[in-house]
Design a protein around this nucleic acid. Structure first.
Lengths: 189, 189
DNA sequence: CGACGATACGGAACAGCGTTCCGTTTAGCA
DNA sequence: TGCTAAACGGAACGCTGTTCCGTATCGTCG
């Protein structure tokens, strides 16, 4: 859905919204979603008033960051699919996805807080990721490089769960690689 | 377990500890367990330093209040058993217990927070309440006023769950009464 | 019974937070 | 180029938890 809701957006407003999203993403990843507001505004090079104009509720900002990162991760797929062969593209995207999930520690508490701003997030997660992974998986299967009896939903959830523990960063990488090797196992060729 | 751990406690210290427990219980019931510290100290007529000396961590105070109220509720049973006939005593105590549970809204979040100060609370809950309810139930069953095939554990949990909804205060009362009528249903006499 | 040491008290003071408000700047259009 | 509406930034406010230390009180011992 575009931003064509009536009025035009001023360029600086757009710039600051983007800066806030980027800064918040970084801060949330390091200090959790309860991080001080000033830390975010400082990193974005923006006043407190600006933050509150764009995101009146803290949950608005959190939800927006989440959506933004979901989009970034999902949108990375086409480029990978164009540049690499199917199974390599699949593998690289799963690594990318694992990295995304790794930054979402502490967000699950917010998700279960009952705040209506979060209600649509899980659905958005599935809606964006399932088609992407489904496409990569199908391409790799068609090329005969991976088996074709794996449900995208299962693979998505498995990868997400793989990165839940303490994660030394290297650990998640290796586990995802192992998962991909599992996909190759029953391949046609 | 008593307070016989070594030294003697000064009288004013004991008085203030009690005042803080009483004030905190009231404030927690009205404003939740995240209520401002000053609200508690003010109601207790005590300085902030006094609170922090007796309860260095907020979780210490919450746990102490919880234990204190569990004790108060459990200790109310003997008097009821002495003053009323068995089934009436049972009914009145269940009402009392329902009232106790009703003030514990918002505490469940704290319980599941992983703070080690709360770990022992569920066990304490069962350890104090199960014998009490068991005793009242057995007495009523022996008098032939209620059936004898009801597990105290089930009844305790059921009563607690009954008071979970919006509770107009009257609602919980009526539901508990209904539960007691259910107990009478298969009585011997 | 009076004095003394230990213990506990209270609240001012501090640091940090979210949020608001408004004088100033800037973007975009005529 | 000038004008207006929109957006900006950060000082200021009120509220928070927590610490600190001069003062008051308790309980004991001579």
């Amino acid at each position: 859905m575009g931003d064509e809701t009536g009025k035009r957006v001023r360029a600086d407003a757009q710039r600051n919204t983007d800066a806030l999203l980027a800064a918040a993403a970084e801060v949330f990843a390091t200090s959790g979603v309860d991080a001080p507001v000033r830390q975010i505004t400082a990193k974005a090079g923006v006043g407190a008033g600006t933050l509150y104009r764009h995101f009146p509720q803290r949950s608005d900002l959190i939800a927006a960051v989440f959506r933004h990162e979901v989009d970034a991760c999902a949108d990375a797929a086409p480029a990978l699919a164009a540049r690499y062969e199917p199974v390599e593209a699949l593998s690289r995207w799963l690594q990318r996805f694992a990295g995304f999930v790794g930054t979402k520690r502490g967000l699950s508490a917010a998700l279960h807080s009952g705040d209506p701003a979060y209600e649509s997030l899980p659905a958005y997660f599935d809606q964006r990721f399932l088609p992407v992974l489904g496409g990569l998986l199908e391409a790799a299967a068609k090329a005969g490089e991976v088996r074709s009896d794996v449900d995208p939903y299962d693979l998505l959830r498995a990868t997400a769960n793989l990165t839940l523990p303490g994660d030394d960063d290297g650990h998640a990488r290796r586990m995802v690689a192992l998962l991909v090797d599992g996909l190759r196992y029953g391949a046609e060729k």
